[in-house]
């Protein structure tokens, strides 16, 4: 076993928990005022008003749910894909606001809106930050296996002798494949 092979589940754990923290924070900061979250989406002037309000109301809840999936490590690779898609959408939204010269707060970790007069938005740090989150999501797509995850726990449960027993008739004799399967797991 290479050292990367041993370290990868730990690195994935750190990335998974960090991304969980990102989504939980973003969601919890916005969930208390859904109308404000909707107005932040509306400020991008991409969706019509009513659609923006619904999108803005749904988004914090989806972010919290996604954060919880990442926190417990359930469906990690899928959660990574969804995170990546969301980050691409956020990056596209901010870039488009920038390109159109809109003067807005991105509403990423706040309720957003139009900035007070005289305040020029700096979209570069926001884009770099979202790019870093995108990289974390892609890492989880490539290396979804992590320590202390529900995925690994479920995997363990199904790779026991019992799981093999039902397909043969040797009644409780140790399965050669089981210990090997257990060993393989991070």
């Amino acid at each position: 076993m290479s050292s990367w092979h041993r370290a990868q589940p730990w690195v994935s754990l750190v990335v998974r928990l960090a991304l969980a923290g990102v989504f939980l924070t973003a969601g919890l900061l916005k969930v208390g005022d859904l109308a404000a979250s909707g107005r932040a989406v509306n400020a991008y002037q991409i969706l019509p008003y009513d659609a923006a309000m619904i999108f803005g109301a749904a988004q914090p809840f989806v972010e919290i749910a996604l954060g919880l999936l990442l926190l417990v490590g359930l469906a990690t690779r899928l959660a990574g894909w969804i995170s990546a898609v969301m980050m691409v959408a956020f990056i596209a939204g901010i870039s488009s606001a920038w390109a159109r010269g809109l003067n807005i707060d991105c509403g990423c970790f706040s309720k957003g809106g139009v900035l007070p007069p005289g305040v020029t938005p700096n979209y570069v740090p926001e884009l770099l930050r979202d790019a870093a989150f995108l990289a974390m999501a892609v890492f989880l797509i490539i290396y979804p296996l992590s320590r202390f995850s529900l995925d690994a726990r479920l995997d363990q449960l199904s790779t026991t002798d019992e799981a093999f027993e039902e397909y043969d008739d040797d009644n409780g004799e140790d399965e050669p494949a089981a210990p090997a399967a257990r060993q393989r797991r991070p």
């Binding site: 803005g56 749904a58 809840f61 749910a65 469906a75």
Partner: peptide
């Protein structure tokens, strides 16, 4: 997992509506 995310979104819509 996808159902959970969809339901979460619908809850948000419902609360707002």
């Amino acid at each position: 997992a996808v159902s959970a995310l969809v339901i979460a979104g619908l809850i948000g819509w419902g609360v707002y509506a």
